[in-house]
Amino acid sequence: MNESDAIDPSRRDALVFGRDLLLGGAAARWAGPSPAQAATANDPQAPVTVKLTLRVNGTAKSLALDTRTTLLDALREHLHLTGTKKGCDHGQCGACTVIAGGRRINACLSLAVMHDGDEITTIEGLGAPGHLHPMQAAFVRHDAYQCGYCTPGQICSSVAMLEELRRGIPSHAGADVAAAPTATPDELRERMSGNICRCGAYSNIIDAIGEVAGVRT
């Protein structure tokens, strides 16, 4: 791949591949009635809706949501940010991990109305094909994923987790809760254990995170 016209090969791959699968910008080919058309104005049992604003990936998004809507479904179904995944909807798998106000949370366990005005960072906010976040690039290099479904959650979780380490938040894996924690492989494994990967990429995920954290795993 030493062609004179070659730019960053990983970026080229992404562009050629992405163009094909993303159908970027094209209008939906099929559509149901829009919610406005569908709403029956005089329905006494109509869901209780609340207006709120989420600051998602640096952009304010105003929404009127059924109060039962989770942060996860607000992101996926209302903002169409489907990078955040629904694996269990019960806080058991971590696929829906996003960063809210600097902390990683399971978006499925949080109602959207609880986040009015909050800063939410999703996988789409970390990087995009061609402009990968260092953690995203490390996941690609280390093949730290297989099916890709837990991957956005693993990446969001790991980015926030390294920040927790920097802030000195202790974990079960540390020998001394009073001492500053370090990014040992066991620390990383302990702190990432809320993110299940059924494909079993754990060994590579820890290698990828370790590389970003600057430690040998």
Binding site: D13, F17, L22, R29, L81, L126, A137, T151, P152, I155
Partner: peptide, 19 residues
């Protein structure tokens, strides 16, 4: 890889682009 790590690979429930 760049699609999977950025959340832009679309799975069966996520075809908002088409529907």
């Amino acid at each position: 890889g760049p699609l999977k790590t950025t959340g832009t690979a679309r799975y069966a429930y996520e075809h908002h682009d088409a529907v």
